[in-house]
Design a protein around this nucleic acid. Structure first.
Lengths: 238, 238
DNA sequence: GCAAAAGTGTTAGAAGTACACCCATGA
DNA sequence: TCATGGGTGTACTTCTAACACTTTTGC
């Protein structure tokens, strides 16, 4: 099917950051040869793949994420294209890729276009669909990944800090519909890398009309229950 | 020479913005078939080209700029990858490209990686090297360009505004070593798209230790001569 | 009662915004 | 003397930063 003819020079990689209310986690998939024992250790990599001849970069990023992790309809932002000549220098990665795509010719340098996404990890997400070998790993404690994926994640974090500064409302995509002040606080801190005084943060909250306090409180916590808030996009501009 | 084997799927395009003390200009080259009359109208395009198999994206951007315009050693910043399927839909552009690169197979969709640069236009630059068919066009008054190059320039301007907000010192690359307050003012305004009160701008200038006032003044102007300043990068951080 | 996290106010300094007139120069 | 752009000051508001203790809840 010509629609699925592979472009062997261009790939996309997705840095999907999931927030669990406290810290950021990266969505990774297993790089494991078919036929290998399911429990073999193996390496992890970002969800990513060569693109098809007849799909745009944005489409490729959405497709790859869906195929490798089951996630769909996430907001992906393109952030950088990686074109170093040594991206395939690791023989393990090269062999894995050639087998994975059933390629006959050996691969040349691949230019990979990076996308990031900020999403919340809820109960269903936490346990990812069993059909996929996908998992969440804390950003603060990543293993060595395949290809240059550790570098790609570093670059993503740099860019994300800038994007969050420029359009702070993007952090609400990390949070559930109802969230506490401290969850918002941690989401800001984790994405911008900036620390901030919690009292000053509360004060700033009160000046944001689009963060609407609810009567509702947290339940089932073994300490004082926090007030819940919701984000109202309609109150953003004025 | 294998070093110069073309990668027919990936290109780079450079949005070089030159500042003449008042407004931004884009560096364009002629898209003209060899053998065509030198005065034929033809189309303009950004300096850009397919990359070689064995060069990085950054290297390709530098090379292309040098080959097509004679410019070298400029700071290029990667800003976006363009992967729409219709980038080659215009038959004129497609034919031109295939001839230009002496390609035998017809081209598929090309992913183009955009770079921008901010430079000053000085007297030597204003009249670009005659060996190249390059010229400056005011950003505010661009004709229709080849490929999706008008879109690429729009995207570049969006990104540049963000970059200038995040690292304002980049505007000094638009200015000569000695510059007036109003040149700096126009450079800020043109890159960020923001207007600002000129009195408040002067006040802000005084709080920037890295903008050093000189005793020297403008010469040969038919109005009150403005003070000159210089930028001292060493005074940036503290 | 203790562990754990929630929530709250003041002050000082810095930075931003709004606003209008006189000055120097060359033609 | 006129046209052109250069240069200046004040008052007000807003934002930022520093700083420590009391409250609620479940165990």
């Amino acid at each position: 099917m010509s629609h699925e003819q592979i472009n062997p020079y261009v790939s996309v990689d997705c840095v999907v950051l999931g927030f669990d209310g406290r810290q950021l986690n990266v969505l990774l998939v297993r790089q494991r040869e078919e036929g290998t024992d399911e429990n073999s250790t193996g390496y992890y990599k970002l969800p990513g793949s060569l693109i098809y001849m007849h799909e745009t970069l944005d489409e490729a990023a959405q497709r790859v994420l869906r195929q490798l992790t089951g996630l769909s309809q996430v907001n992906l932002y393109q952030f950088y294209a990686f074109g170093a000549l040594n991206r395939l220098d690791n023989q393990r990665d090269r062999v894995w890729l050639e087998h994975f795509h059933r390629l006959e010719k050996s691969l040349e340098r691949i230019v990979s276009v990076g996308y990031f996404s900020l999403i919340r990890i809820n109960r269903t997400m936490l346990q990812l669909d069993k059909g996929y070998e996908a998992c969440w790993m804390p950003l603060s404690d990543l293993p060595q990944l395949a290809f240059d994926h550790n570098d790609i994640i570093s670059k993503a974090m740099e860019k994300i800090a800038g994007v969050v500064e420029a359009m702070p409302e993007i952090v609400f995509s990390l949070l559930p519909r109802k969230f506490t002040a401290s969850q918002l606080f941690y989401a800001y801190s984790a994405t911008t890398g900036k620390t901030m005084d919690i009292r000053n943060f509360h004060k700033k909250l009160h000046t944001m009309p689009f963060v609407v306090p609810l009567e509702e409180k947290q339940k089932d916590v073994n300490h004082r229950a926090a007030r819940l808030y919701r984000f109202d996009r309609r109150l953003l501009v004025p």
